[in-house]
């Protein structure tokens, strides 16, 4: 159980917050709730994955289709994340370095994928790229396959992860302002030079954090990918889909083994976040 000790800076605020006894009770409730609600489900995954020992676990995670699912998932992330990094940088630059009408609207549009149900996103993409979709006849005529193949999976992944980098960059770049960049411009630096030498070093940790979040979501996306995947074993099943498939294959242990791999990735994401947190000014990350 947590023990209360208050370093100097937070002391005054903490004292103002109430009596130490009250603090202990609140902290106690918070810790217990978090353990019960968030930590135990994660423990269950590992407990189930190793329920029959280490050997079956290793056999499950090295099974051919599961390995292929890992490969596909990595490939999708490698294709989708750089696209969204480029988009994030470009959009953040446009939004924070210039004033224009409709900025609020633009930000809403950028954030939209975050509020759209992944299933809805998958359906929308089928309505565009499916054989009967808006672009279906054109794609068919040119023998291009988007849906139920790698391009479709990558596209919906790009969609669901598109806000992540922007939303990390915009608040930070807004706080930092454009003074340094403007000085550089006055001194005759070109746009790219300003970006590489001035802006990028200032935002690198926020960018990195955005990439981490984006990657985590790209790896874990389920609903949207499920709609457009076609579920071909060993070919269009990403790791989260493989989890569901194994679960229905009389292979709960295998499903939990695959799930535990994804959980490890999630935990690694959190660890990276904790490290970056220390390097990042608090104002930058949280947007105020």
């Amino acid at each position: 159980m947590a023990v209360i000790d208050m370093p100097a800076p937070a002391e005054r605020a903490a004292r103002a917050a109430g009596s130490p006894a009250g603090a202990r009770i609140l902290i106690g409730i918070a810790v217990v709730l978090t353990l019960a609600f968030i930590v135990v489900p994660v423990v269950v995954i590992f407990a189930q994955a190793f329920a029959r020992g280490l050997a079956p676990y290793l056999a499950s995670v090295t099974e051919r289709d599961t390995l292929r699912a890992v490969g596909l998932t990595v490939l999708v992330a490698l294709l989708a994340v750089p696209v969204n990094v480029a988009f994030g940088l470009v959009a953040a630059w446009a939004i924070t370095k210039f004033e224009f009408r409709g900025k609020k609207f633009l930000l809403t549009a950028i954030e939209l994928p975050f509020s759209i149900s992944p299933i809805v996103a998958g359906v929308a993409y089928i309505l565009v790229y499916g054989s009967n979709g808006l672009l279906g006849p054109f794609l068919e005529a040119n023998d291009l396959r988007i849906m139920f193949a790698l391009p479709g999976i990558v596209l919906v992944t790009i969609f669901v992860t598109s806000p992540f980098v922007v939303r990390e960059l915009v608040p930070l770049m807004q706080v930092q302002g454009s003074d340094q960049e403007e000085v550089a411009a006055t001194l005759g630096a070109s746009g790219l030079q300003i970006f590489w030498r001035v802006t990028l070093p200032n935002i690198r940790w926020a960018l990195f954090y955005g990439v981490v979040l984006c990657t985590a979501r790209a790896i874990g996306e389920f609903g949207a990918v499920s709609v457009v995947s076609g579920h071909v074993r060993g070919e269009t099943n990403t790791l989260p889909l493989q989890v569901e498939l194994l679960y229905h294959d009389y292979n709960a242990a295998g499903a939990f083994a695959a799930a535990s791999t994804l959980t490890l990735i999630a935990l690694a994401t959190l660890a990276i976040r904790a490290v970056i947190e220390r390097r990042l000014p608090r104002t930058g990350r949280v947007g105020h």
Partner: peptide, 19 residues
């Protein structure tokens, strides 16, 4: 405790459902 708050975001939803 602070870091754990982000776990539900980092965890794929299918895995969360299974768990």
């Amino acid at each position: 405790l602070d870091a754990l708050i982000d776990l539900p975001f980092a965890l794929p939803t299918a895995v969360a459902g299974l768990a």
